[in-house]
């Protein structure tokens, strides 16, 4: 296995993940460079979350290699460069006493280090992060009292508070209503365009990913498409990604049973 090459923000080489006899990921080779906005799509069970968790070093691959910023992930320690918004982040325990500002401050823990108190700089960065996602007016509100869309932004602010180079977003709009969803995509689009943050967005919301990403990667245990979002449909990406080869029969008009 060749060692990681230097510098792409994220890289996997021939990544294989296997649980028992089930191959969850097969031969996944992926490289994400600085400034990209990549959408990762695929059906349920395609291994999207597994890939993301492997990228974060939360899962040990059966085979292959994962590198962050040019270092093997198990030796990577500069986690301030990566902001991660996990799936179901919005499903926090509504009774947990934590204000939006406190959650955003958690994004500064890695930067501050063990045993050190949060400084004025941390509080400023957390407030700025809340402002960047447009919810600084909710800073003192308990996160359990916020709407799904607002909570989503709190967790995005947490990821942004450490000023990361890369954002990993796992199904960020699950449990968020339609209008909030659109705002959210506009927001991360802005983060990529205006602030140059590299984004890997995992979603099954194909339309949204096609609209805002620069590059689309479709996963179905293996990478079945990696290219421009526009060409995805023409090249039959959907049927490859979703294992669908349903022939279309327009002559069979539906009759009630």
């Amino acid at each position: 296995m060749s060692p990681c090459t230097c510098d792409p923000l994220l890289e996997t080489k021939n990544l294989n993940v296997q649980y028992g006899n089930a191959h969850v990921l097969q031969d996944v080779t992926l490289r994400i460079d600085d400034g990209e906005f990549v959408g990762l799509v695929g059906p349920n069970g395609a291994g999207k979350s597994t890939l993301l968790r492997s990228l974060l070093g939360l899962i040990d691959p059966s085979n292959g290699e994962v590198c962050c910023c040019g270092r093997p992930v198990h030796r990577f320690d500069d986690w301030t460069r990566i902001g991660y918004v996990p799936q179901h982040a919005v499903n926090v325990d509504a009774k947990f006493p934590a204000s939006a500002l406190e959650i955003a401050l958690l994004g500064r823990v890695a930067k501050r280090g063990l045993f050190r108190r949060w400084t004025a700089e941390d509080k400023q960065a957390a407030n700025d992060a809340l402002a960047r996602v447009g919810i600084d007016h909710l800073a003192e509100r308990p996160v359990g009292t916020l709407s799904g869309g607002e909570r989503q932004r709190v967790f995005l602010a947490k990821a942004l508070a450490g000023n990361p180079d890369l954002l990993l977003l796992d199904e960020p709009t699950a449990g968020v209503d339609m209008s909030a969803r659109e705002d959210f995509y506009n927001l991360i689009d802005g983060l990529n365009h205006e602030e140059g943050i590299t984004i890997l967005l995992v979603s099954h919301d194909l339309q949204a990913v096609q609209l805002c990403c620069h590059r689309l990667v479709a996963l179905n245990r293996r990478i079945v498409y990696d290219g421009s979002p526009e060409a995805f449909d023409e090249e039959g990406g959907i049927s490859r990604a979703y294992d669908m080869n349903v022939s279309h029969h327009p002559e069979r008009t539906g009759a009630p049973p």
């Binding site: 974060l56 890695a110 063990l114």
Partner: peptide
């Protein structure tokens, strides 16, 4: 898990 990810022991 988030705490572990941010590098906390």
């Amino acid at each position: 898990e988030g705490a572990r990810l941010s590098g906390l022991p």
